[in-house]
Write a protein that binds this DNA or RNA. Structure first.
Length: 393
DNA sequence: CACATGCTTGATCCGAATGC
DNA sequence: GCATTCGGATCAAGCATGTG
């Protein structure tokens, strides 16, 4: 007779739950000693924390001493010592159970200092220990700051916790990738952290290791017990953590002083602020209009329209039409004339002129214009019929 | 290669205004 | 009372993109 499911689960649970801790405690001397020692190149910084787990701690000057929240990235920041910057180096990019974080770097501001701690997996059996230390760090943190962590690092770590039957929840996430994209997408070749460092923060890395080479270096290290580039991987991770802190400070500073960064995109900043109901949005959108940014004109005029500030909206549409042909501005003007000013002939003039001078981008646009035009003609005829002094042509 | 996110576009619904 | 139109809200789908 088969054992019941609950019996099997209970046995499984018993055998699994006792395993990790005993593994951590056991001082395995049975295996070959070749890879047991920390290589001399790392000896000064790294300490053995547990079986197959090394740790490195260093302090540097905090980039966040003049930090000032704008309230736009995070509503209410907890105290800085409850922030946790984090970044992982993993065995690959793929999700799923097979991908492991072999190096977890965390950073925590502490007064004038910034404390960076890195946990390095010397081999797979060290993972439960790594996760237990990480869990303690997570437990005393209220804000988790990363770059693309929401879709990469966080789910990956959660999977590792799950696989090791450790319950651990990370709190509110601040993923700096998204504000960077909103603000600088059009001013950068891409929004990778490296580009942001180089072109926005003015940080130039020397001898940085490309991310794509990192998994192989660890696998090679596992096999050989050493690798000449392992230190570069650790430095790479260390710099990522520090850059996160510099970047957060810069972004918040940018909200207060947009000229403080070498790159300023008035439209992007204006839209960013408008989305967050920040009244400063208008002046940035206006300056984007001054710089001839057509997206700024569209966004700003629609804002005024929504606010019922018709004169301001009309002013923008008029300016657009003075400069160039614009189906958007023409249609908006026609709507305004038809529904607000009740000047049907003027509205019809604009649509007529537009249809004569442009070739419609799409069938849909053409049909929409035609629809608008027939309605205006119908209205105009009745308008004329009601006005005896006008003569019908 | 997976996944979360944000942006864009299109579809749909609702309330209000207006004309008949 | 009915039909049309608009703006605004909301939602879904599609697309691009960063992470090692």
């Amino acid at each position: 007779m088969k054992p019941g499911l609950s019996d099997r689960l209970a046995r499984l649970k018993k055998s699994q739950s006792s395993q990790p801790m005993t593994r951590i405690m056991s001082s395995s001397t049975a295996e070959g000693d070749i890879s047991r020692e920390i290589p001399s190149a790392l000896k000064d910084d790294w300490k053995v924390l547990d079986k197959d787990l090394w740790v490195m701690e260093r302090r540097c000057k905090s980039p966040l001493t003049d930090f000032k929240s704008s309230g736009l990235l995070v509503k209410d920041y907890p105290p800085q010592d409850q922030w946790l910057f984090y970044d992982t180096e993993t065995t690959g990019l793929s999700g799923g159970a097979g991908n492991t974080a072999f190096l977890v770097g965390i950073g925590r501001p502490s007064g004038d200092e910034f404390l960076i701690t890195q946990y390095f997996l010397r081999d797979y059996p060290g993972e439960p220990a790594l996760l237990h230390y990480l869990k303690e760090e997570i437990a005393r943190s209220e804000l988790f700051i990363s770059y693309n962590g929401k879709s990469f690092d966080k789910p990956l770590l959660e999977t590792r916790f799950l696989m090791n039957r450790i319950s651990c929840r990370m709190g509110p996430q601040l993923d700096l990738l998204y504000p960077v994209r909103s603000l600088f997408k059009n001013r950068l070749p891409n929004c990778r952290l490296g580009s942001v460092e180089e072109l926005i923060l003015g940080i130039h890395r020397t001898d940085d290791i490309p991310g794509s080479e990192i998994p192989d270096i660890w696998f090679e290290f596992l096999k050989e017990g050493s690798h000449p580039d392992l230190k570069r991987v650790m430095i790479h991770n260390d710099m990522d953590i520090l850059s996160l802190a510099v970047l957060l400070n810069a972004l918040e500073n940018y909200m207060h002083f947009p000229d403080s960064l070498p790159i300023c995109d008035s439209f992007a900043l204006g839209r960013f602020l408008l989305d967050r109901n920040d009244p400063r949005a208008l002046s940035f959108l206006e300056s984007s209009v001054d710089q001839g940014d057509q997206r700024g004109e569209v966004l700003l005029s629609l804002h005024w329209k929504r606010q019922g500030e018709w004169e301001k909206a009309v002013q923008i549409w008029t300016n657009i039409l003075k400069k160039r042909q614009s189906p958007f501005a023409s249609v908006e003007m026609a709507k305004y004339l038809e529904h607000k000013k009740k000047d049907i002939p003027a509205a019809l003039d604009i649509i007529d002129h537009l249809m004569r001078s442009m070739r419609p981008k799409s069938m849909l646009q053409k049909e929409e214009l035609l629809h608008r035009r027939t309605r205006l003609i119908r209205k105009k005829e009745t308008f004329v019929a009601d006005t005896p002094c006008e003569t019908v042509e």
